[in-house]
């Protein structure tokens, strides 16, 4: 939902970042306002996933220049855990398995860290149990998954549901979803997309990172950005995704070649 007077939540300006001294992001500029859903599309290696990792603060990525402001703060100054507590959420493309750590306990500690930051009280095990069971419905997840170790032995679809469950619990201001649709069959995709739609509100914004149009059939973006060679090459409305579906990314190569980049 685009509103001219909406608050600017996340402001990425000319962001450059590298991994092991190899530049991956080469000047990304992106402004996200409250109520908006943005999609970043692009081929493998275009820098989409790197963008999401940098925003979440992954230690392997080094920001070389540019800035990211989040609600008036310098986001890049913050530790990953501080970003989460302040309302930045990254839904992982490949959620990590953590053997031995109970999913329920993990979700509770995580939720309480965020709640504390919002000035809400911590939930004890009983209150949290009620809370999480209610939130499970957002992704129609079986409560049995709460009793297992974090993501351990979960199928691809179950892992993605667990990610959206975390999003539902953490109530983020900026939700970045990295290839949330990958590895999902069409039913699971609908459930996960339904969860994301349900959680989108006039007060938060969503950044979808995806290869394919099919997720965007379920979650209609306000803006579509095409990323290539570490920057945003083109921005349009949801129709841009449909155009890409038809024409593919060949024009990207042509444009990059014309600029002498590709």
């Amino acid at each position: 939902m685009i509103r001219p007077d909406a608050e600017l939540l996340l402001e990425i300006n000319d962001l450059h970042a590298s991994v092991e001294d190899k530049p991956i992001l080469n000047g990304v500029t992106l402004h996200l306002k409250a109520g908006e859903i943005h999609a970043v599309m692009g081929r493998n290696g275009s820098g989409k996933s790197t963008l999401s990792k940098v925003l979440a603060g992954h230690p392997a990525y080094r920001v070389t220049s540019g800035s990211v402001r989040y609600l008036g703060r310098d986001l890049l100054e913050l530790e990953p855990e501080e970003r989460s507590r302040l309302g930045i959420f990254l839904g992982f493309q490949y959620p990590i398995e953590i053997p031995g750590v109970s999913n329920l306990e993990f979700l509770r500690v995580s939720t309480n860290a965020r709640r504390q930051n919002k000035g809400q009280g911590e939930l004890d095990t009983f209150d949290f149990d009620d809370h999480v069971r209610e939130r499970l419905q957002v992704v129609q997840m079986d409560p049995a998954f709460l009793e297992r170790s974090v993501n351990e032995g979960f199928s691809g679809g179950e892992k993605k549901r667990n990610e959206i469950l975390q999003m539902a619990l953490l109530d983020p201001v900026v939700a970045i979803l990295d290839e949330t649709d990958s590895g999902l069959d069409i039913d699971a995709l609908r459930i996960v997309a339904g969860g994301v739609n349900q959680l989108a509100s006039p007060d938060n914004c969503t950044l979808l990172i995806t290869h394919y149009q099919r997720l965007l059939d379920e979650i209609i973006p306000d803006y579509v950005h095409v990323m290539a060679a570490g920057r945003i090459l083109r921005t349009g409305g949801s129709e841009l995704a449909l155009e890409l579906e038809k024409t593919g990314y060949d024009w990207v190569d042509q444009q990059l070649a014309a600029e002498g980049v590709g």
């Binding site: 855990e81 398995e97 995580s110």
Partner: peptide, 12 residues
């Protein structure tokens, strides 16, 4: 693994 937990608000 550590980053995953940290990105969920859990300190290092």
């Amino acid at each position: 693994q550590l980053f995953y937990l940290q990105s969920r608000g859990i300190g290092f």
